[in-house]
Amino acid sequence: MSTVDSKTVDALNWVAPKRDPGALGRLMDNKMFLVCVCLFPALGLLIVFLTYPLGLGIYLAFTDTQIGHAGEWVGLENFESLFQDRIFLNAVWWTVAYTFFATILKFGLGLWLALLLNHHVPFKSLIRAIILLPYIVPTVLSAIAFWWIYDPQFSIISYVLVDKLHWMEHYIDFLGTPWNARWSLIAANVWRGIPFVAITLLAGLQTISPSLYEAAMLDGASPWQRFRFVTRPLLMPILAIVMTFSVLFTFTDFQLVYAITRGGPINATHLMATLAFQRGIPGSHLGEGAAIAVAMIPFLILATVFSYFALGRRKWQQGSDND
């Protein structure tokens, strides 16, 4: 008894109230029944509102369902027409490009920020709290702020570049031409994504034992070599997981594009998700919208498989004491 801690003593002193175990009580102590009761709310909600709609979505993709009009099975017709559809093909290309560029920039800058924060800086936890703000605030609301920053006439960026610094002649038409709009969206996405990447990678950096750096320094490793041979391999597993999630959510992004450009100018910035929404809900072609959404699934599976192998590798690196 002398070795138990205070919590255990509390638990030991606690006396079960005298009770008459009724039928319900005995049922509750049946483990299998209890398991079912405990899992019911979570699994119930997930099956009704996630698994079933996922299956239904795949079914809808093969029908010509419209809002208020039950559809019929049309086979691959939706997909055949989509692959002839320049707007859809452009959306697929742009979704991939958007994910690619935004991810590279997010991870480059996020890793840099994480490395900066890993130094000894004053007010570290305050800075960390401030940095997460873009991630906390509703995306649509910060997107509206970006929309205002990208205003063709009153953009503050144009004002600084043209009127203050005199680096440029004319105000930038941020959202008026396809490429300007695309880079503007990528910039907004990177702005929103940096905090998540930086904070999670910082957590990864802090798990790396300082003695490894000491050993490397004793062996005469330069800062770059220390990053290359100590930080990088030990950060890789967490980097892979964070990147999988980041890619997954950038690829299926909807809010930023919907709020800032609504797919314009001339459908140049439609992501697959915004196009699916536009065709499916306001356009009322549910079948076609579902087909566009289903077309995203192969890409998502690729990302998940990547995640699975990254997790597997992490377990292997840590040895068997992980679980």
Binding site: L46, T51, F254
Partner: peptide, 20 residues
């Protein structure tokens, strides 16, 4: 299974979910 549910983004669910 529950972990996999996290990997299903709302963007591919909202159309069928709207009908549900």
């Amino acid at each position: 299974g529950i972990y996999m549910a996290y990997l299903v983004p709302p963007s591919i669910l909202f159309i069928p979910l709207a009908t549900v």
